[in-house]
Simulated assay, not measured.
Amino acid sequence: MFKRIAVLGALVLASLCPVLAAQAKYPARPVVLISPYQAGGTTETFARLIIDDVGTLLGQPIVIEQKPGAAGTIGARIVATSAADGYTLLANTSQHVMYDGMLTRLPFDPMKDFRPVGVLGSAPIILVTGRDSAYRSFEDVLAAGKTKTVTFASGAQGSLPHLTGERVAIQANLKMTHIPFSGTAPALTNVIGGHVDLLYSTAASVMQQIRGGQLRALAVSTKERMKELPDVPTIAEMGLPGFDVTAWYGVWAPKDTPAEVVDAFNKAMREASSTPAAHKRMEALSVTPNDMTADQFSQFAESERRTWLDVIKRANIQPVN
């Protein structure tokens, strides 16, 4: 009888071995990376800088799918409710960590229902104005904002460029009114046309217009000047010491995704970001590569969340439905 049990046990174990091996090998099939915005947007652009190389390193293609709507929450919800196996991931802007400060009816918890995987890259935010604007420098903006209301645009309510403008207004005690647009393109049109005074935007979205002379760059948000714009000062050096903001784009997995799966994808992201070819692609868009581990990204995301929820509170921005 004991011999029969031993034989049966061996047969069961043998039958499970292929299953266990398949589970251990990740990925065994293509991975879907959901971008919760329209095709061709900045999130997809950041992802495409390295994602093909990530797929090559992992041995499976990474397929980007757009699931836009509701400030990115439709796509995020799809990932939050997907199987926690690493085959459905989310690429999102830094707005992800502050969703619950901007929206009252979230179908998920932006931190508890997701597991941080890695950062695709980061970029400065640039303060620009139209070519014919009266604002010739950041000092002009500071002086004007003390005595009158200055308008500034961004591509979306609650976006990092929007909150960067709010943070400047708070720290410098300026009178500023935010004018949100549905995307950077209409915001650009209105600033170039002189209908709105200023625009805060990621570098990739405005460098072409700066180089073409349609926009004038007044300041950059990072602690160091941009190599591409060496004559444009940082906000910190113009009277707001310690000011340092970067727009970052991260990859997130469902909350119960195994650590080994997260680490495998993160490792491939960091390796893909470190190649000369990737650096060349990123440099063309003023993007900085990132080599955070998943644990480091988790700590960074929590820190960013605290910072920007505080800005939302101090700016008296009310969440919407």
Rank of each mutant, 00 (worst) to 15 (best):
S159R: 03
S122R: 12
A247I: 08
S133Q: 11
T246K: 11
D140T: 03
Y249S: 04
G193L: 11
L163Q: 06
H178C: 11
T246M: 10
T177A: 04
I235C: 02
R211H: 05
L188D: 08
G213S: 13
M238P: 00
P233W: 01
V251Y: 05
I192T: 14
V251R: 00
Q214W: 03
V251P: 00
I126L: 14
R131N: 15
T151C: 06
K148N: 07
T151V: 12
T164K: 00
G183D: 13
R211Y: 13
T184N: 04
T189F: 10
T184Y: 11
L218A: 04
F138D: 04
G194D: 06
R216C: 03
K148F: 02
T234A: 03
K223M: 13
G242I: 15
A253R: 09
L174N: 04
E224A: 15
T184D: 08
T129N: 04
P186Q: 08
V191S: 06
A185Q: 12
L160E: 13
H178A: 15
L160Y: 00
R167Q: 08
E166N: 05
K227M: 14
V141F: 01
Y249C: 09
G158P: 07
T234R: 02
K223P: 10
N190K: 07
H195T: 15
D244T: 12
V128D: 04
Y249W: 12
G155Y: 06
V168T: 00
R211K: 15
A123W: 04
A253I: 10
R167M: 14
T164P: 05
T151L: 09
I179R: 08
A156Q: 06
G242C: 11
I125Q: 05
H162S: 11
T189S: 08
W252I: 07
A153N: 10
I125Y: 00
T151F: 09
L218E: 05
R136S: 08
L163E: 12
A143V: 13
G158V: 10
R216Q: 09
A204K: 04
S182C: 08
R131P: 06
A134H: 13
A156D: 15
L240M: 14
P241R: 07
G158K: 00
A217P: 07
V220C: 03
R216D: 10
G183M: 09
A217W: 01
V232F: 02
S122D: 10
T234I: 11
L199R: 03
G250A: 09
G213C: 01
I170P: 05
E228V: 02
Q208N: 11
L142H: 05
T177V: 07
S154I: 04
F181A: 04
D197S: 10
E166Q: 13
T147C: 08
M238I: 02
R136N: 15
G213T: 04
T222F: 06
S201A: 15
Y200W: 12
G213W: 00
A203V: 03
K148V: 14
K175A: 12
S182A: 15
F243M: 01
L142M: 12
V191H: 04
V141H: 02
P161I: 13
L229Q: 08
G250N: 13
A153I: 11
R225D: 10
M176A: 00
